[in-house]
Design a protein around this nucleic acid. Structure first.
Length: 697
DNA sequence: GAGCACTGC
């Protein structure tokens, strides 16, 4: 490999480790004593006491309000912490230890692992809560795993999270919108509840900013020194991961075509390296399909040399059967090559991978608050991502990672961490959640990353136009408070609330559920023709939303049959989610005192309800347009009906769309035809007057 | 006549 690949010179990640007890030992380092960089480790080693893991954890949680654990990726050590805490009495007197994860799957798997280690059943002493599933037993459950989104929801009923004695936030380095929100709120809670302990676990070494963030009270704040409360200086604990070392290789020269370079790298690995599966990170389905094609062709041409290659693709849209193929063990004499999106970086773990090929790119979402459009853009990944990808090669034995970029690029040009989601998202749901918690001065609030003011303004504007916020930017009653209760995009929640008055809530709940899943259609290349024919069967003249009702009705008539779904190009798993979500929404509106009613065949009521939430998404067909060009009412943006819509080529004069998707053009996804007079009826404040300037901050 | 990184309540 040497003429092509250059070994990395970066020092391997090493932490404060001493090998005792056949495992790992740790140094506990208060952040004030050092910058917590690699260079200071040796110095710390000489100056600081050495603790065993359990002792260190208990000591730090006892003495410090906040403990930050760094660099433990894959160590499995975080799952031991709640057990230590429980043994030390932190779950006595009705108190509960909470541990959050950003994903439902990890919540379930960590909970069952911990329950097994403790020899109890999930749902008793150890339980978990994720959306649609609550496996806890009040009074019995002492350690509770949950997604950070669920914990945020819990705060709406119990803003100080009083039942928890310790809250552990895992995977904080991922900087998801809900993790950042949670950490900001937890910092605030700590001031009111000095006895609360926080443990924040992060895989990146950049612990200092996290530590600074939690160093809240000033030194001369008398209250802090008088009581015997915990030290408000956050403590940092470095933990060595248990992964095997991974040797890093870079390309000597920048590559112009990462797809071709990835294929070549796989062939080279297959030729030169001993057995072991290969994981290739590309950006999306297009890339992946092309690479699979190239590899398959290549393997066919040179049968003898490249026999034994088993090429598979991996992305979230795959059917269950295809995913199972990924997880079956590699047959003897074969080498599995998995070409994947970012899904394999965090969401799925593949066993047996020894070689990683990293393109250095991923698709990332960016939000433009001026146009109010979210875009998916192929962009270079961060160093943190690159390390995470490389780490995937060291799970079973020492591995190798081949990076399709130069070491100079890695060292000099790659950002240390990605842009937090807070700074590249639409913030309407974020804002309404905070408003419901009584937080008004959102930009003055302490966040790990400041939400961009433009996005804040846009979110407040949208919520004001929906009459969820009033002129003082306070939640309206009852609409605003009710919308905050509903766990959906506020525009959809508004549509649900109006549907009650229009007598079509049964129908609108179905539409809301379908709009909230990714897609109810199967998305496999080459199925367009069949899919289009099937869509005609369900097509309604009013548009896509009404067609969804036809699909749902037919699905129920089939007895919720997976076979029926298969025949009709409908994604069975999406439909099951729709059913679940419908049930949840139905329970929820009943709790708000609303009994869902059906409007039968009155689709005008349904369309009016949709407009009550989506009046801002109206477009008008250009009068002399030959190619179906529309202009949005709000900003005269040039838009088109997406070819997947049942109204494609029908081109009604006025439409309302659910979302805009931007590729070469701006496409409207999920469209219904409307009468423009319904717009002014639904939102006179929006269409008849200039919007007043509202006090934003 | 086209394209959906990934989560989550």
């Amino acid at each position: 490999m040497s003429q092509f690949w250059k070994p990395g010179t970066e020092k391997p990640r090493s932490c404060l480790v001493d090998d005792e007890e056949g495992g790992v030992l740790f140094y506990a380092a208060p952040p004030s004593s050092s910058g917590h960089g690699y260079s200071s480790f040796e110095r710390l080693r000489q100056r600081l006491p050495v603790f065993k893991y359990r002792t260190a954890i208990l000591y730090l949680v006892e003495k410090h309000a906040t403990t930050i654990i760094v660099g433990e990726t894959g160590s499995g050590k975080t799952t031991q912490i709640p057990q230590y805490l429980k043994e030390a009495g932190w779950a006595e007197g009705g108190r509960v230890i909470a541990c959050t994860q950003p994903r439902r799957l990890s919540v379930q798997s960590v909970a069952s692992r911990v329950a097994e280690e403790m020899g109890v059943k999930v749902g008793e002493e150890v339980g978990y809560t994720i959306r649609f599933e609550d496996k806890t037993n009040q009074g019995v459950t002492k350690i509770k795993f949950l997604t950070d989104g669920v914990l945020l929801r819990e705060m709406m009923n119990d803003p100080l999270l009083t039942k928890y004695s310790v809250i552990m936030v895992d995977e904080a380095h991922e900087r998801s919108l809900s993790t950042d929100t949670l950490l900001g709120l937890l910092k605030k809670i700590q001031r009111r509840r000095p006895e609360l302990r926080l443990i924040i676990s992060s895989a990146t070494i950049e612990a200092k900013s996290m530590s600074n963030f939690f160093r809240t009270r000033k030194k001369n704040d008398g209250q802090a020194s008088e009581d015997n409360g915990p030290n408000i200086e956050p403590s940092i604990l470095s933990v060595e991961g248990k992964g095997f070392p991974v040797e890093i290789f870079y390309v000597e020269e920048p590559v112009s075509d990462y797809l071709r370079a990835a294929v070549d790298a796989v062939l080279l690995i297959h030729e030169k390296e001993p057995v072991g599966d290969v994981l290739v990170f590309l950006t999306g389905q297009d890339d992946i399909d092309a690479a699979v094609q190239l590899l398959t062709d290549e393997a066919r041409e040179t049968t003898r040399r490249h026999s034994g290659l088993l090429v598979l693709s991996l992305y979230s849209g795959l059917s269950r059967a295809d995913q199972d193929l990924i997880f079956t063990p590699t047959p003897k004499g074969k080498r599995k090559v998995i070409i994947s999106t970012n899904i394999a970086e965090t969401s799925l773990t593949l066993e047996g991978v020894v070689y990683v090929v990293d393109s250095g790119f991923s698709k990332q979402r960016f939000y433009n608050p001026i146009s109010d459009i979210e875009n998916l853009v192929v962009a270079p990944i961060s160093k943190a991502s690159a390390r995470q990808r490389a780490g995937r090669a060291g799970r079973v034995r020492p591995g190798k990672c081949f990076r399709l970029y130069t070491e100079d690029f890695f060292v000099q040009d790659m950002p240390v961490e990605g842009i937090p989601e807070m700074q590249r998202s639409n913030l309407v749901s974020f804002v309404i959640q905070l408003k419901a918690l009584g937080i008004d001065n959102i930009l003055g609030f302490d966040w790990l990353a400041l939400p961009p003011p433009e996005s804040m303004i846009r979110a407040l504007e949208v919520l004001y136009s929906l009459e969820i916020l009033d002129e003082d930017a306070k939640l309206t009653s009852p609409t605003g408070f009710q919308v905050a209760e509903i766990p959906l995009d506020p525009m959809i929640s508004k549509m649900i609330l109006t549907a009650d008055a229009l007598g079509c809530l049964e129908e609108i709940i179905t539409i809301a559920a379908i709009l909230s899943v990714q897609s109810i259609w199967v998305s496999v290349r080459g199925t367009h023709k069949g899919l289009d024919e099937v869509k005609l069967r369900f097509a309604a003249a009013e548009g896509d939303h009404v067609s969804f009702l036809n699909v749902y009705k037919a699905f129920l008539q089939s007895g919720k049959s997976s076979q029926w779904c298969y025949k009709n190009y409908i994604n069975y798993h999406s439909m099951k989610k729709v059913v679940e979500m419908r049930e949840q929404l139905s329970r929820l509106v009943r709790r708000l005192g609303i009994i869902p009613k059906s409007c039968g065949m009155d689709m005008q009521a349904v369309r009016r309800a949709i407009i009550s939430g989506f009046f801002a998404h109206a477009s008008q067909l250009e009068e002399y347009s030959q190619n179906g060009m529309y202009k949005t009412v709000r900003s005269s943006q040039e838009v088109y009906i997406h070819p997947s819509s049942v109204l494609f080529r029908v081109n009604p004069k006025w439409v309302v769309y659910h979302s805009l998707v931007s590729t070469d053009k701006h496409y409207m996804h999920n469209v219904i035809a409307i009468d423009p007079s319904w717009l002014t009826e639904a939102a006179p404040h929006f269409y008849q007057q200039r919007r007043p300037s509202i006090p934003l901050f």
